[in-house]
C-alpha cells in the first residue's frame, strides 16, 4: 500500500460518486438536438468536476505490491507477483507450461 495506490483508491471512489451526474451532463453536452447554449452550459459544468472524478484517471495497479506496470488484468497482479503466486499454487487453473 503506497501513496499511488491511495491516490488510485481516491480516484475510484470519486468516479463512483460522480458517475451518474457526469453521465447526465455528458448526455446533455453531446446531444446535438439540444440548443447550443444548453449544451455549452453542460460542458462548463463538466469542466468543474475535479481530476479524480474522471474514469480515465483510474489505473489498474497490482493488488499485492501496488506496481503500475506489467499488470495482468485477469488477476490484478503484476507479472512477478503473478509468477510467485502461480508457482505457489494460489491461482486456480494456472500451470507452468512445459513441452
Amino acid at each position: 500500500m503506497n501513496a499511488r495506490v491511495l491516490r488510485d483508491i481516491k480516484a475510484r471512489i470519486g468516479v463512483k460518486d460522480n458517475e451518474v451526474l457526469r453521465k447526465a451532463y455528458l448526455y446533455v453536452a453531446r446531444n446535438t438536438t439540444l440548443p447550443p447554449q444548453v449544451r455549452h452550459q453542460a460542458q462548463l459544468q463538466l469542466n468543474t468536476f475535479g481530476r479524480y472524478t474522471r474514469p480515465t484517471t483510474v489505473k489498474n495497479r497490482c493488488i499485492a505490491t501496488g506496481r503500475g506496470r506489467g499488470i495482468m488484468s485477469e488477476f490484478g497482479l503484476c507479472r512477478f507477483q503473478f509468477r510467485l503466486k502461480a508457482l505457489k499454487g494460489d491461482l486456480n487453473g494456472v500451470q507452468k507450461a512445459s513441452w
Binding site: 483508491i9 475510484r12 468516479v15 463512483k16 474514469p55 493488488i63
Partner: peptide
C-alpha cells in the same frame, strides 16, 4: 462502471 471500479482492491 463505478461500483466495480471501487471494488478493485
Amino acid at each position: 462502471r463505478g461500483p466495480a471500479m471501487a471494488n478493485y482492491y
